[in-house]
Design a protein around this nucleic acid. Structure first.
Lengths: 118, 118
DNA sequence: CATACATATGAACATTTGTTCATATGTATG
DNA sequence: CATACATATGAACAAATGTTCATATGTATG
């Protein structure tokens, strides 16, 4: 453990460890997609929308009223959430009702909340 | 609850639902902090760093070599991860070794990965 | 204590991102 | 089919973010 090569000037880092780690890293693309997913959770407006949908399916105007934001802003954000498969929607007359896509959303947010609440 | 915004006529339906949801929403500040946390996960460089630290504690240069990035870029990102309490570090001679702060990190990432892998 | 090395930091820059404004699309109803 | 309503979209703009470059700080060793 402590037989570190003392020179860490980039060209001679802990070569074997680095190689071991490299081999175990997931695909570049997968890591990119994962970061993209978290990026979606990384905005307080979208977090609020998702939390709201924890309780009930809602239309765009409901959410706009709840968060005191414009219809347009909410619609733009819902599109992002749709594209990431975090919310789904159904039409009911002229209204479109949004809801959480599945239980992953809840679990991801809850895990995050556990860390934040410490 | 005073005047709201133009386009959408907020006088319409779902008032009670919106009120119910509003009451159950967590504190504004908590939601903000949660978004900030996910923002940290929302960058592929930082995701890669965290995944690397899944396998072994590493110094800045190790990570720079692994990801083929500059020492400076990695150092900047490690600072972000430190500030969010996602990584910790210890000194060993002139080297500083970084590792995951706790198991939340793993769990949050794994939950995210489940969603991405579908 | 002078030197080399490992890491940190600040400023500058390009890119990305969230909101607004104006307007378009789509859908039910008179 | 004309109208009103619910939602979507595109362009523009400001704010936030990640990397680079240059340099500073801190630490061991000869």
């Amino acid at each position: 453990m402590s037989d570190h090569i003392e020179v860490c000037s980039f060209i001679h880092a802990h070569e074997e460890v680095v190689e071991m780690v490299r081999e175990r890293m997931p695909e570049e693309e997968l890591l990119y997609d994962l970061a993209e997913l978290f990026k979606v959770f990384g905005d307080s407006t979208r977090i609020k929308i998702l939390y709201a949908l924890f309780e009930s399916e809602l239309c765009v105007c409901d959410i706009a009223q709840l968060l005191n934001m414009t219809q347009s802003a909410i619609s733009h954000q819902l599109r992002v959430l749709k594209q990431s498969h975090l919310v789904k929607y159904r039409r009911d007359g002229k209204i479109i009702l949004y809801s959480l896509a599945d239980d992953h959303v809840r679990r991801i947010i809850n895990q995050g909340m556990e860390h934040v609440e410490e």
